Simulated assay, not measured.
Amino acid sequence: MFAEVGLDAASVETICERAGFTRGAFYSNFESKDELFLALITQLSEDKLDEVSVRVKKLSGSRDVVDLVRQIASMSLAERMEPQLLSEVRTQALRDPRLAEAFLAWRAQMLGRIETIVRDVSELHALPLRMPVADAAVLLLDISEQCSVQAALERLSERQANRAMQSRLEQVVPLLVGPV
């Protein structure tokens, strides 16, 4: 619903109807649509980062950065992380300070997870980073989000979107690795 019509236009009644729950069930789990919305993007993000974390632990011993990017990105990175949802929450957060605070907390949580993944790859494969792990995580998250938005605007299939993101990561990640 949120991706289709946006946060404001998605009524609690419509959300409950589509999900097969009552208003009472909704309000026993969430204080507001904003809380549900943040829970939704958190779950989608966590699921994707869990998949990436598992993939990182199974990487071959390669020190070829592009090969490592291909191994990690061979899963569908664009899957289920609707750029419409992220755009919607950003737009709403610009207007609502409480939602902005919650969005920034969510983003910090995601960045922490990405930092762990970057650190794991760097350490497991003896690949020194040219910048602090936190900066690399921000850059990679920004690239991922921008690639997702661009793919949605271009109406790319999931496969095409994943390939576009993989291609961008293959260009950028080698610039992050190596002696300072």
Rank of each mutant, 00 (worst) to 15 (best):
S60G: 15
D64H: 05
I15V: 14
I15E: 07
A134P: 00
V56N: 06
S144W: 12
L156H: 04
Q171D: 09
V12G: 07
Q166S: 05
V54T: 15
T116E: 14
D34P: 01
L44M: 11
K58Y: 05
L127A: 10
R107H: 02
S157A: 07
L127T: 07
A25G: 13
Q43S: 14
L59C: 04
A100Y: 03
A93S: 15
A137W: 06
L44D: 13
L104M: 08
G20C: 00
T22N: 08
E35G: 01
P132H: 13
E115D: 14
F37R: 01
V121I: 11
D50V: 15
R55D: 08
M1A: 12
V172N: 07
L59F: 04
R95K: 12
P174G: 04
Q146K: 06
I114D: 07
V121S: 03
L124P: 07
G6E: 01
S74A: 10
L124Y: 04
L175F: 06
A19H: 07
V5M: 10
S144G: 15
Y27I: 06
F30E: 14
F26V: 07
A9H: 12
E79C: 09
Q150S: 09
Q146D: 01
V138T: 10
L86E: 11
A78G: 14
L139N: 04
I114Y: 03
R107S: 05
D67H: 11
R80L: 03
P83A: 02
Q109A: 15
R159H: 09
V5S: 06
P179Y: 05
E88I: 12
S144Q: 13
E82Y: 03
K48A: 05
F26A: 13
D67S: 14
L94M: 15
A151I: 04
A136F: 02
G61H: 06
E158W: 00
Q166Y: 00
Q160R: 06
E51A: 14
E79H: 10
L153P: 04
R23G: 15
A161C: 07
L156R: 15
I15M: 13
E79Y: 11
N162L: 02
A93D: 12
